[in-house]
Nucleic acid binder design. Structure first.
Lengths: 339, 339
DNA sequence: TTGTACGCGTTATCAG
DNA sequence: CTGATAACGCGTACAA
């Protein structure tokens, strides 16, 4: 592999000049520049990036920590990050945490060892104190994460108001017994979605029937199981708000096992608007998160940090949208009942 | 940030010794080793990986090229790769090609610039000559890709026999008019699946009705559109083999639009066994690819290449499996008709 | 505008 | 078993 000195020799200049042609072409006279470029071409020279990174103590690489890449929600955010990163000359290192806390800690080592210039964490599980500690030393951005006392830039939607909107939709369709299966309650995001649900019921003067509120963890299985269990009881909901589409599908399938029709006997609203939401039968009414955009935005914020620019605000809430399809019954009535 | 020389000074040894403690501890006397480790601990020293990578001309990083990370099929393979990589001290750089050929070419630059030690390509679009050319210079492995004349190690399932199996299943359920919507025919993988379909029909003495064979490209949309079109014609299939689950779902939804019952009026077999295959209504009969394992295996092969070990064979075909669920009708008949 | 010369932090070589 | 020292290839003061 030819090195810079080879180019320099062939072009009859010094390595300094070759380096300048590569990094700051305007500082070189046109004639010499051409000679150098010609030599580069002739030798098919490629700069040794390892040497460059070492010399400049930067890697042009960012780390993306994902709880689980197989989850389409995360995959789509990663897609947005990658797009924005590569557009700006950055590469994306992917690490699956498999929801192991120690793998999140491990990523700190990565930063310390200068293996990456910065990091984006999706749904981190680390406590806020630790996150703040890392953030004070390295450029990091959070995605799909809310913070109690935000000090680190993060990208999210407003989980309270979106859940409120979803629940309200069901209430305005006439439902009095609206159930909810939560995500894991150690996650602030789940608590926020739960909060929006409760707020909506309260605002519309409906009591919260704690028997209709169950604990799950976003998954299809937890939706199915909790719903099966709920339907085995003596009083059942006429509508359910689920904090993920996967869970909504689990709920619907459980209801079908009990010979319930969707949406006539049970209305369901999901969350995320995954690709599959519109393909399912019935198609899911759901809250659409702009996942790809959230990925892009996280990377934009990280880029600012990497470039030393200041970030005015820490909360970056992107607009969500209630997508009305067939699982809630609004479309069955010929026209929407409200809005 | 403390450097190796700081550790050396504190421990009263040379940098060479510190380096040895880190990389080849057995070559250092226990006493000195302890002194050094103590100093490392006291200074909270972290080796500068950039310097190490530069010095050793290796990055402990591999590149994974994905057509589209949002596709669950690829995401799952990536999951397997990442797991195996991190288990062996390698990091995974993720690049989305968005099916742009130039991004595949770009990855070659990456290798040339020594930014990564090797590469795994998922469903590459580059021609075999180019792939062979790259492979002769750098360690690469292919996944979900078949080759006309295999010279590069690749991991796949046997697409011909699995498609044969899927089609045969439909035939043995009594279907005479078995349709097929293909993937893009510039992909060898699609051609193989098409080949298995045709072979099965031929072996069972059934004519291939070219009107029942349509061109698609794995997507839900192409399945839906082609099926809608097919159902608008005067003669229609009683069963369809789809080369992806997404497409199978599109086909089913199109059939439902035409008031057809699945599987009574139309039996469908899909491919991939994506997570949603079992959640869908009806649940999909499909060919299960061991995607995660395929990812792991690709990484194992790449590790061998990186370690200079020889790889005996180039074709690594993993076992697939026909998963019988509700979309084909076999289960409706009380018991399987065959097996 | 260009060249010289040094340093980045680690590892490998070689001598002791 | 340990130490001194020379690379690795590039970027950048500083000098010309």
């Amino acid at each position: 592999m030819p090195k810079m000195s080879d180019v320099a020799r062939l072009a009859g200049v010094s390595t300094a000049t070759v380096s300048r042609v590569l990094r700051n072409p305007d500082a070189v006279k046109t004639g010499t520049k051409e000679k150098v470029l010609e030599a580069i071409h002739q030798l098919n020279y490629q700069p040794n990036m390892l040497a460059r990174h070492f010399r400049r103590t930067e890697t042009k690489t960012i780390l993306v920590l994902v709880p689980n890449i197989i989850n389409t929600v995360f995959a789509e955010i990663v897609g947005g990050i990658e797009e924005q990163a590569s557009k700006n000359g950055y590469r994306v290192l992917l690490r699956n945490t498999a929801r192991k806390l120690e793998r999140e800690y491990g990523s700190i080592e990565h930063l310390k060892q200068r293996q990456v210039d910065g990091m984006i964490m999706l749904s981190p599980q680390l406590d806020e104190a630790t996150l703040n500690e890392i953030s004070s030393q390295f450029p990091i951005v959070l995605a799909t994460a809310n913070l109690e006392t935000p000090k680190i830039p993060f990208v999210s939607i407003d989980n309270v108001s979106s859940s409120y909107k979803a629940t309200e939709h069901l209430i305005r369709l006439g439902h009095k017994k609206v159930g909810h299966i939560t995500g894991p309650m150690d996650s602030l995001l789940s608590r926020h979605r739960n909060e929006g649900y409760r707020k909506a019921l309260g605002d519309y003067g409906l009591d919260i029937d704690e028997q209709l509120v169950r604990r799950g963890h976003f998954s299809y299985e937890s939706g199915f199981e909790q719903m099966m269990d709920m339907l085995g009881q003596n009083h059942v909901p006429t509508a359910v708000f689920a904090p993920s589409d996967e869970m909504a599908i689990g709920i619907i399938n459980a209801a079908k096992e009990h010979q319930l029709r969707i949406p006539e006997d049970l209305a369901v609203v999901g969350f995320d608007n995954i690709r599959f939401a519109s393909m399912f039968n019935p198609s899911l009414t759901t809250i659409a998160q702009p996942l790809f955009k959230m990925g892009q935005r996280s990377m934009e914020l990280l880029l600012k940090k990497l470039n030393g620019e200041s970030i005015s605000q820490t909360e970056h809430l992107l607009p969500d949208e209630l997508i009305i399809r067939d699982s809630c019954g609004a479309r069955k009535k010929g026209k929407l009942l409200h809005n």
